[in-house]
Design a protein around this nucleic acid. Sequence first.
DNA 1: GTGGTCTAGACCACG
DNA 2: GTGGTCTAGACCACC
Lengths: 142, 142, 142, 142
Amino acid sequence: MQLHIEASNGIPIYEQICRQVKFAIANKALQVGEHVPSVREMAGRIAVNPNTVSRAYRDLQTDGVLIPIRGTGLAVTPEAPAKCNAERLDLIRDRLRIVLAEAHHNQITPDEIRQLVESELHRLESLDADNSLKPVTTGETA
Amino acid sequence: MQLHIEASNGIPIYEQICRQVKFAIANKALQVGEHVPSVREMAGRIAVNPNTVSRAYRDLQTDGVLIPIRGTGLAVTPEAPAKCNAERLDLIRDRLRIVLAEAHHNQITPDEIRQLVESELHRLESLDADNSLKPVTTGETA
Amino acid sequence: MQLHIEASNGIPIYEQICRQVKFAIANKALQVGEHVPSVREMAGRIAVNPNTVSRAYRDLQTDGVLIPIRGTGLAVTPEAPAKCNAERLDLIRDRLRIVLAEAHHNQITPDEIRQLVESELHRLESLDADNSLKPVTTGETA
Amino acid sequence: MQLHIEASNGIPIYEQICRQVKFAIANKALQVGEHVPSVREMAGRIAVNPNTVSRAYRDLQTDGVLIPIRGTGLAVTPEAPAKCNAERLDLIRDRLRIVLAEAHHNQITPDEIRQLVESELHRLESLDADNSLKPVTTGETA
DNA sequence: GTGGTCTAGACCACG
DNA sequence: GTGGTCTAGACCACC
């Protein structure tokens, strides 16, 4: 499981972690019963404070996605895949909705929006192509 | 000029005001030299704290979009339309970019994204139809 | 609204705060729309770290009991009274259940349990009598 | 001697073991001089980490309830029954006290408490009836 | 070793 | 002024 944390695109780090763990479960990158990386390991891996990871894991427990296994760590619950699959597109949709609503309220036409979307999709694909050649981070604003 | 403030969709209110004033200028709803509503009137109209409006107007002055006219209020600068037109799509694009980037990082396919976009666009149109209720069948969006 | 924090009866402080805010709402000591004491004030009042109060308030927001009012604080939501009333006895029942289950698993008879309960109830009443005012009319101040 | 471990009702597993061994002694399910199951056997029987059982047995030795018999294991001390009988109701009372105190602090009336107690006692009896038919775990999975 | 709780304090966003 | 986020680190419970 690989997380892409961007500090900061406006989304709190702990929430980015939350969301990406859910995506990883939806994508089968994390299986039921499997342990998520320990707080300390994850914190080291993505270079944030352990408490930030802890906060994210706590939220995931509240959501019923993770469950503590005494003394060994946190595991993916049996219900998690269903929840995460159901949420998979919703998580994106919610964010997309407010962006499109703003565009729409301000007289940007559906066709202009479609063009923006297409140009961004192409941009992402070409970034992928670049990254597959050289594993360099790109476009980070932080 | 009508503002659509949503408290809170994650965007600070003062920034929503800023953005929408710029959009209004780009859309010719606000002309060069025209006065923007006073801080007090605007605050009353959209039911927010006057300080919040004040903060937005301050940012707009910094951006060179508004200019104070002694004793009368704030007017749209001659340079504003050009700036606002240039920014019009950029403002949306920036926000769209981070949403699509997240989707893409998490194995959501371009086609799924396109479907989400289309369903949201349709949703916005039907919301419009409900709100206006005028029996218009021309399909024009503006 | 008066909170009784006991550090420590095994319940984390932040959870004690959470529970007691809910009880206060159920008891009409906190009304819909009313603001809860600010994080800093509450922290000072019950002599705990502000972050501990903050954690409790955050959980209450997740539960839909409190809602942030931009820049002014946290208010009781319209839905809160219903939720808190519904939870009022459940919060106690859940804790009672594990105690009684343990007693029952270990051959303590229902009648023994009833006796324990009665003796504790009497104890609490006599504590009340001591703490508040004994029905004395002498006018002593202390 | 049968232990009912519930991971997790908030009571640490090692303490649940401790308490239940004491209850077993108070109930004559464990006699003076009798050996308690070995750490390994007990750990297997209740499906917990052997270290957890070990920790519980260590506490019981500290309490003078168990004593090591060279090469054979841990036996119930002659003083144990008296201690355990004396503690029998106290262990429950202590836990009951904090629950009832919270209820009382929050305007839950003695009669409401009595009703909760009665309903929980009935619930426990009906669970027993069910279990005597089918020796199934109570349905709490985690 | 694991996670949980709490404290302390910096910094920011918001109104 | 308000709450939110993040960092840092101590201490504890559990396994």
